[in-house]
Deep mutational scan, measured.
Amino acid sequence: MSIQHFRVALIPFFAAFCLPVFAHPETLVKVKDAEDQLGARVGYIELDLNSGKILESFRPEERFPMMSTFKVLLCGAVLSRVDAGQEQLGRRIHYSQNDLVEYSPVTEKHLTDGMTVRELCSAAITMSDNTAANLLLTTIGGPKELTAFLHNMGDHVTRLDRWEPELNEAIPNDERDTTMPAAMATTLRKLLTGELLTLASRQQLIDWMEADKVAGPLLRSALPAGWFIADKSGAGERGSRGIIAALGPDGKPSRIVVIYTTGSQATMDERNRQIAEIGASLIKHW
């Protein structure tokens, strides 16, 4: 067993022997301040990774656009098919120029040779490549099948209805392509620590998230040296922004954090800054 596999296998073990965790309302004060600064709703939840206990939450059962955070769930569904012998990570998928959609920095470079399922998941999570996500959605049967996968996990809230990039439209009061912070946090925890996926697939999923290259201005910008984070960000229309993450000190994750916002007129930089400040408060009061 590799060191990384050992780390993920012992996530519940280490967490069980940690000192009790206590909620700190100071972080919620910052979440509410972010709402004021952005002029928009902000949803927040913080779960203990081992027990699933909610440590703090704000608007945990209000719907927010998922945006690209759905790509972690998508690759979880792909990995479940791999575990069941219905898919192979090494299978190569070929596609054409007509398949390319807006923001496809990886797939646009491989029109000639195609990409493997493993490479597509890596591109979808680490670079948020939209064509990679659409190609992977095709392998599982489309958005409705991802929703069905989530329902089978016990998540009857999260739903995907459309493809990239239309799913980022974020129309107010439109339930399409949305989740709730509580539902997303619980589902992410199941994917990373539950028995739904094999140990190898859980490790692969967290490795992809740990290698995320496009979430630097968010929670990662607030992390002290030595902290662990595996995350996936999302951005959408109407001032929408979000991030889902597993993080913790001492090089291992111990909490799940989900943050979503929508309806702001603020710039992307300002949305990023507010999420980073929430992260800084979380870490300060850990």
Score class of each variant (00 low, 15 high):
residue 1 M to K: 01
residue 1 M to A: 02
residue 1 M to E: 01
residue 2 S to M: 12
residue 2 S to Q: 13
residue 3 I to Y: 14
residue 3 I to A: 08
residue 3 I to H: 12
residue 3 I to N: 13
residue 4 Q to P: 09
residue 4 Q to Y: 14
residue 4 Q to R: 10
residue 4 Q to K: 12
residue 4 Q to L: 09
residue 5 H to R: 08
residue 5 H to K: 13
residue 5 H to G: 06
residue 6 F to Q: 09
residue 6 F to V: 11
residue 7 R to F: 09
residue 8 V to A: 13
residue 9 A to M: 14
residue 9 A to Y: 15
residue 9 A to F: 12
residue 11 I to S: 07
residue 11 I to Y: 11
residue 11 I to D: 02
residue 12 P to C: 13
residue 12 P to I: 13
residue 13 F to S: 09
residue 13 F to C: 10
residue 14 F to G: 07
residue 14 F to I: 13
residue 15 A to K: 04
residue 16 A to V: 14
residue 17 F to C: 09
residue 18 C to R: 01
residue 19 L to H: 14
residue 20 P to V: 03
residue 22 F to A: 10
residue 24 H to G: 14
residue 24 H to S: 12
residue 25 P to S: 10
residue 27 T to S: 07
residue 27 T to R: 03
residue 27 T to M: 06
residue 30 K to D: 05
residue 30 K to V: 11
residue 32 K to M: 15
residue 33 D to Y: 14
residue 33 D to K: 15
residue 33 D to V: 15
residue 34 A to E: 03
residue 35 E to K: 03
residue 35 E to Q: 08
residue 35 E to A: 07
residue 37 Q to W: 13
residue 38 L to I: 10
residue 38 L to W: 06
residue 38 L to G: 07
residue 39 G to D: 12
residue 40 A to E: 05
residue 41 R to V: 09
residue 42 V to I: 12
residue 43 G to N: 00
residue 45 I to V: 15
residue 45 I to Q: 05
residue 46 E to C: 07
residue 46 E to N: 10
residue 47 L to C: 09
residue 49 L to G: 05
residue 50 N to H: 12
residue 51 S to E: 12
residue 51 S to P: 03
residue 52 G to Y: 05
residue 52 G to Q: 06
residue 52 G to V: 04
residue 54 I to S: 08
residue 54 I to F: 11
residue 54 I to P: 13
residue 55 L to R: 09
residue 55 L to F: 10
residue 55 L to E: 08
residue 57 S to Q: 13
residue 58 F to V: 09
residue 59 R to P: 00
residue 60 P to Q: 13
residue 60 P to T: 12
residue 60 P to L: 10
residue 61 E to F: 10
residue 61 E to Y: 14
residue 62 E to I: 06
residue 62 E to Y: 08
residue 62 E to L: 07
residue 63 R to K: 09
residue 63 R to P: 08
residue 63 R to W: 04
residue 64 F to Y: 06
residue 64 F to C: 02
residue 64 F to G: 00
residue 64 F to H: 01
residue 65 P to G: 03
residue 66 M to A: 07
residue 67 M to F: 04
residue 67 M to A: 14
residue 68 S to A: 00
residue 68 S to E: 00
residue 69 T to Q: 01
residue 70 F to W: 08
residue 70 F to A: 10
residue 70 F to R: 02
residue 73 L to P: 09
residue 75 C to H: 00
residue 77 A to S: 10
residue 80 S to T: 11
residue 80 S to H: 14
residue 82 V to P: 01
residue 83 D to C: 04
residue 84 A to T: 14
residue 85 G to C: 08
residue 86 Q to D: 13
residue 86 Q to E: 12
residue 87 E to R: 02
residue 88 Q to T: 13
residue 88 Q to K: 12
residue 88 Q to W: 12
residue 89 L to R: 03
residue 90 G to P: 08
residue 90 G to E: 15
residue 91 R to C: 04
residue 92 R to P: 08
residue 92 R to G: 06
residue 93 I to Q: 05
residue 93 I to R: 03
residue 94 H to D: 11
residue 94 H to R: 13
residue 95 Y to C: 03
residue 96 S to H: 11
residue 97 Q to K: 14
residue 98 N to H: 14
residue 98 N to V: 11
residue 98 N to A: 15
residue 102 E to N: 10
residue 103 Y to G: 06
residue 103 Y to C: 05
residue 103 Y to K: 02
residue 104 S to I: 02
residue 105 P to M: 06
residue 106 V to S: 08
residue 106 V to Q: 12
residue 106 V to H: 08
residue 106 V to T: 07
residue 107 T to Q: 01
residue 108 E to L: 09
residue 108 E to D: 11
residue 109 K to W: 09
residue 110 H to N: 08
residue 111 L to G: 06
residue 111 L to H: 09
residue 111 L to Q: 09
residue 112 T to C: 12
residue 113 D to Q: 13
residue 113 D to R: 10
residue 113 D to K: 12
residue 114 G to Q: 04
residue 115 M to N: 03
residue 115 M to K: 03
residue 115 M to V: 06
residue 116 T to M: 06
residue 117 V to N: 03
residue 118 R to Y: 15
residue 119 E to M: 06
residue 119 E to R: 05
residue 121 C to A: 08
residue 122 S to D: 15
residue 123 A to I: 04
residue 123 A to N: 05
residue 124 A to S: 10
residue 125 I to A: 04
residue 125 I to Q: 02
residue 126 T to E: 11
residue 126 T to C: 11
residue 127 M to Y: 11
residue 127 M to Q: 12
residue 128 S to C: 00
residue 128 S to T: 01
residue 128 S to W: 00
residue 128 S to L: 00
residue 130 N to I: 01
residue 131 T to N: 04
residue 132 A to E: 00
residue 132 A to M: 00
residue 133 A to V: 02
residue 137 L to M: 11
residue 138 T to M: 13
residue 139 T to K: 08
residue 140 I to H: 04
residue 140 I to E: 04
residue 141 G to R: 06
residue 142 G to Q: 04
residue 144 K to S: 15
residue 145 E to Q: 14
residue 146 L to F: 12
residue 146 L to H: 02
residue 147 T to G: 09
residue 147 T to Y: 04
residue 147 T to E: 09
residue 147 T to M: 07
residue 149 F to R: 07
residue 150 L to C: 11
residue 150 L to K: 00
residue 150 L to A: 08
residue 151 H to R: 15
residue 152 N to S: 15
residue 152 N to H: 15
residue 152 N to R: 15
residue 153 M to N: 10
residue 155 D to C: 01
residue 155 D to Y: 01
residue 157 V to K: 15
residue 158 T to H: 01
residue 158 T to G: 05
residue 159 R to Q: 09
residue 159 R to M: 07
residue 162 R to N: 10
residue 162 R to D: 09
residue 163 W to T: 10
residue 164 E to G: 00
residue 164 E to N: 00
residue 165 P to Q: 06
residue 165 P to N: 08
residue 165 P to A: 07
residue 167 L to I: 13
residue 168 N to A: 08
residue 169 E to F: 12
residue 169 E to R: 11
residue 170 A to R: 08
residue 171 I to T: 14
residue 172 P to T: 12
residue 173 N to K: 13
residue 174 D to G: 05
residue 174 D to S: 07
residue 175 E to A: 14
residue 176 R to P: 04
residue 176 R to D: 06
residue 177 D to M: 01
residue 177 D to L: 01
residue 181 P to I: 04
residue 181 P to L: 03
residue 182 A to D: 10
residue 184 M to T: 03
residue 184 M to Y: 08
residue 186 T to V: 14
residue 187 T to I: 08
residue 187 T to S: 12
residue 187 T to W: 04
residue 187 T to E: 03
residue 189 R to D: 08
residue 190 K to D: 15
residue 190 K to Q: 12
residue 190 K to S: 13
residue 192 L to V: 11
residue 193 T to P: 01
residue 194 G to Y: 08
residue 196 L to T: 15
residue 196 L to F: 12
residue 196 L to Y: 15
residue 197 L to C: 05
residue 197 L to I: 08
residue 197 L to M: 09
residue 198 T to C: 10
residue 200 A to T: 12
residue 200 A to Q: 15
residue 202 R to A: 10
residue 203 Q to K: 12
residue 203 Q to E: 15
residue 203 Q to D: 11
residue 203 Q to C: 02
residue 204 Q to W: 06
residue 205 L to H: 01
residue 206 I to Y: 15
residue 208 W to P: 00
residue 209 M to I: 02
residue 211 A to I: 07
residue 213 K to P: 04
residue 214 V to I: 07
residue 215 A to W: 02
residue 216 G to H: 08
residue 217 P to I: 06
residue 217 P to Q: 12
residue 218 L to F: 04
residue 218 L to P: 03
residue 220 R to C: 03
residue 220 R to A: 04
residue 220 R to Y: 02
residue 221 S to D: 09
residue 221 S to W: 09
residue 222 A to T: 14
residue 223 L to F: 05
residue 224 P to N: 06
residue 225 A to H: 14
residue 226 G to R: 10
residue 227 W to M: 03
residue 227 W to P: 00
residue 228 F to D: 03
residue 229 I to R: 01
residue 231 D to G: 04
residue 231 D to K: 04
residue 232 K to W: 00
residue 232 K to C: 01
residue 233 S to H: 01
residue 235 A to C: 04
residue 236 G to P: 00
residue 237 E to P: 14
residue 238 R to D: 07
residue 239 G to I: 00
residue 240 S to R: 02
residue 241 R to E: 03
residue 243 I to F: 05
residue 243 I to K: 00
residue 245 A to T: 05
residue 245 A to L: 03
residue 247 L to A: 05
residue 248 G to D: 02
residue 248 G to S: 03
residue 248 G to C: 02
residue 252 K to M: 13
residue 255 R to G: 02
residue 256 I to R: 00
residue 257 V to C: 07
residue 257 V to D: 00
residue 258 V to A: 09
residue 260 Y to Q: 02
residue 261 T to M: 15
residue 261 T to V: 12
residue 262 T to V: 05
residue 262 T to M: 09
residue 262 T to Q: 07
residue 263 G to K: 06
residue 264 S to T: 12
residue 264 S to K: 05
residue 264 S to R: 05
residue 267 T to H: 12
residue 267 T to D: 14
residue 268 M to E: 06
residue 268 M to H: 09
residue 269 D to R: 11
residue 269 D to S: 13
residue 270 E to G: 08
residue 271 R to F: 04
residue 272 N to S: 05
residue 274 Q to K: 12
residue 276 A to I: 07
residue 276 A to F: 12
residue 277 E to W: 06
residue 277 E to Y: 08
residue 278 I to F: 04
residue 281 S to W: 07
residue 283 I to Q: 06
residue 283 I to H: 05
residue 284 K to Y: 15
residue 284 K to W: 10
residue 284 K to E: 15
residue 285 H to L: 09
residue 285 H to V: 09
residue 286 W to R: 02
